[in-house]
Every structure is written in structure tokens, then in C-alpha cells.
Design a protein around this nucleic acid. Structure first.
Lengths: 229, 229
DNA sequence: ACCTGAACACCGTTCAAGT
DNA sequence: ACCTGAACACCGTTCAAGT
């Protein structure tokens, strides 16, 4: 018979709890209750709540879509990866501080994701020393944009202080004029129902497009320099 | 005579406390003790601990250097702003989740910062609807990169799992070959002592340069299109 | 109007005691 | 080896009582 508690079961219960009641409800007590066990029993299988967050993170990262690296050009693949990545972390905001500073050493699924991305970039001709930095830059934009996406819609409304910032206030008021051909933030697992793009989606789109355009220039420059030798 | 407690004094005491003992030590009790007052007294002037974080954030944002927007081309100014911004938030990581989702309405200094940036971009010919999205994209990269900067150095070390990810592991091992002409993460207030650039600094540099290169292309394209009319 | 002191409703974590 | 129940050491916040 299988043991009452395992890291696997704890992680599953945690994900279930989060999906039904959100991260705020993820306490050691609630998690133990969900598993029909006392809170202290959890500490026979994990060292801390942070360990549980790490288990969740490795599980959640499996939902990030890396498939494009097998078939598409590197920039298209990076674009799709980044959008899927952002979608996942918009739904898992409290994981961002964990994922962003977490050594990858004990997260097999996360490592598999990086392997796919690194392979795609390498095959496309990116020099080895650039690969990780390119990945990190995209991830940084993704994490920051995920935060922005969960901010209140009126985050830049200057309110009563618009006198202080007239130029900025006008720019905020006209921000929405850019909602033309921007893809919505449809998640990897719900492509049937693409929501209308929010201002945050537009900002991410602008940033990601520009970043990728810059990457293309950088890669071309690297190849030109290499060809000159 | 001035009152015993004000929002201003609370914010000052909080900043002092953080500088001497770090964010972990910022509790309502410790803050009250620093002010020679009981913890419950604080609630006569702020609604919650989050309110105090907001006060801190508006104060900390004054340290971000926006001066380049008055004299330099927009892309150079954006570059300097982003680097200073990142330096400040590397030292104030717990403010990131606050700042990223916080309505700007009651943060006068933050609003002044945005006004300088928006003015600089507008004067340089950026169309009004693009201004906020450009700012948000840079900020997103900055926040994500700040997290990356406080991660352990060996964050991408695959450890025992390097079999799973050979290509990625090789890329991680050769990541440091890019530390040539990258500026260190010297903060705005300590330019005398530029530390050697870390891998995180390099990744941010790569990302920011690429993002700005992409922005230049986008702006040129916008102007070309406008000129064709 | 504003401060005190006690209390409340939580947290994550530890540990002796059981089986 | 693993679980229970009680306890510990904190949190942020509330509120009657004082002045």
C-alpha cells in the first residue's frame, strides 16, 4: 500500500487547493486538512512551506508551452514561449518571487523547459555564451509583465494629482488607442476563448516585440562579425 | 509643537529601520519601538502595513535618476533611467510586488518621475499612445531583472540533473564569457565604486540594449509611416 | 484627537508522546 | 518511520480604556 503522505501528494493537494481557493488560502493547516492529516505531519516530508512552493513551481512550469522550439524559427518560438510563460504566471503570481530566485537544481520539469529553449536557440545559431542571457532577459520581461497584468486597470490614473504630471496624464488617457492587432492574453490551455487585450497585454506585446527585434539585430551583428574573420 | 506621530515620521522611521536591519525586520512592533510608541498607535495614521509600504515606495522612488531626460537623447536617457531604477529596486526587493500593482494616484514623487520620463519620450517624437506602454515595458524588464540580481549566483547550476539538460548546462557553464564591456550595477548614489558586473548584470544589459534597439526600430517605422501620409 | 495595553485571530514550525 | 496534539514564537490588527 502507498504511504499516507508523499511529496507528490502534498504538491497535488496544494495545487488543488490553490485552484479552488487561491494562494491566500494555501496555509499549512488548510493543506493538512485537505490531506486529512495534522499540520505537523507535513514536516516529515518537506522542510518548510517554501519547499512546497518549489514543488508547486516545478509542477506549474509544465504548463508552459515550449513546443514551438521544435518547429518554428527561434524568434517565433521565443515569442510563443514568452506569451505562454506569462499566462501561466499571471495565474500564479505568488510563485514569481520563488521562481525568480530559485536554483533550478531540484526542479526537473523546469530544467527540461530550459533545455528545450536552449536547444532551440543553439540550433538557430545563437553563440553559447548568449543563450542563458537571452533566456534570462525574456524571463525578466515576463515576470515584470505578469505583475503588471494583475494590477488594477486604473493603475496609472493620476487621480487628483494630474496637475503634477500633465504630459504623463495625457499619455495615460490615450494609451488605449493602441489596441489594434495585439493578441489577447489567452493562456496555453484555453486558446478557444481569447479575451480582449487589456492595456497590460498591449504593453507586454510592445515590449516583447521590441525585445525580439533587438535580439534579431544582435544575432545578425554577431554573425556578420564572425563572417568577417 | 509637532505631533508625536505623522505619516512622514512613520515613513522616515521605516526607511531607517530597513536600512539598518532589512525588510525582514520591518514589523509593526519594531517600527513602533523605533518611534517610541505602541504598535496600535500606528493605526491612527495608517490603515495597514501595506500603507506604510506605499509611503516607503514613494520615498524610495525619489532615488531613481531621471536627470538624463533633460539633456540626453531619449534612448540614452531611457537606458540610464532603467539602470538606476534597477539599482534602487535591487536594494528594495520587497517593494516590487507593491510598486508593480500600486495605483500611482497617491504617490506624488513617483508621479513626478513618470512625468519626466513621459516628457522626454514625447519631446523625442514618440506618439502619445505609445508612451505609457514603452514605460511599462522598461519597468517590467527592470522588476524582473532586479529579482534575478538577488538570486543565488549558481541559480542555473543543474546540479545532479545535468543529464536531463546537456545543451542548457553547457550554455550555463559558458555564460561568463560575455563579461567584457558591460557596465556594473553601480547604483545612482554610489557611482564611485562600480562593482564588477555579475552574470545578472550582463543579462540585464543584453536585455535592455536589445529592448532599446527594438524601440528605435519601432519609432523609425512609426515616423516613416507618418511621413508617407 | 491620539496613545496604551490587552486581546484576537491568525501564521509557520517544533517537539514530546504515541504507534 | 511517521503521525498526533499541544505548545511556541511570532505576525498584523482591533478595541475598550484612558488623557
Amino acid at each position: 500500500m502507498s504511504p499516507v503522505l508523499t511529496q507528490r501528494k502534498i504538491a497535488s493537494a496544494a495545487v488543488t487547493l490553490i485552484q479552488s481557493r487561491g494562494y491566500r488560502a494555501l496555509t499549512m493547516s488548510a493543506l493538512a486538512e485537505q490531506l486529512g492529516v495534522s499540520a505537523s505531519a507535513l514536516y516529515n516530508h518537506v522542510g518548510s512551506k517554501r519547499d512546497i512552493m518549489i514543488l508547486i513551481q516545478d509542477r506549474v512550469n509544465q504548463d508552459i508551452d515550449c513546443s514551438a522550439f521544435e518547429s518554428e524559427p527561434w524568434d517565433v518560438a521565443l515569442d510563443q514561449w514568452a506569451r505562454s510563460y506569462r499566462g501561466v504566471y499571471i495565474r500564479n503570481i505568488p510563485l514569481i518571487p520563488v521562481m525568480a530566485v530559485l536554483p533550478v537544481a531540484n526542479s526537473p520539469h523546469t530544467l527540461r523547459m530550459y533545455e528545450k529553449v536552449a536547444t532551440g536557440l543553439t540550433r538557430a545559431g545563437w553563440p553559447e555564451p548568449w543563450v542563458v542571457n537571452t533566456i534570462v532577459a525574456v524571463e525578466s520581461l515576463v515576470f515584470g509583465s505578469a505583475y503588471d497584468a494583475v494590477a488594477p486597470e486604473n493603475i496609472f490614473d493620476p487621480g487628483e494629482l494630474s496637475d503634477i504630471a500633465p504630459v504623463f496624464s495625457a499619455a495615460v488617457a490615450h494609451r488605449d488607442l493602441l489596441l489594434d492587432s495585439v493578441p489577447g492574453d489567452d493562456a496555453a490551455d484555453a486558446p478557444e476563448v481569447p479575451r480582449a487585450p487589456s492595456p497590460a497585454d498591449v504593453a507586454f506585446d510592445v515590449g516583447l516585440r521590441s525585445l525580439l527585434a533587438g535580439f534579431r539585430l544582435a544575432l545578425d551583428a554577431l554573425h556578420d562579425r564572425a563572417a568577417a574573420d
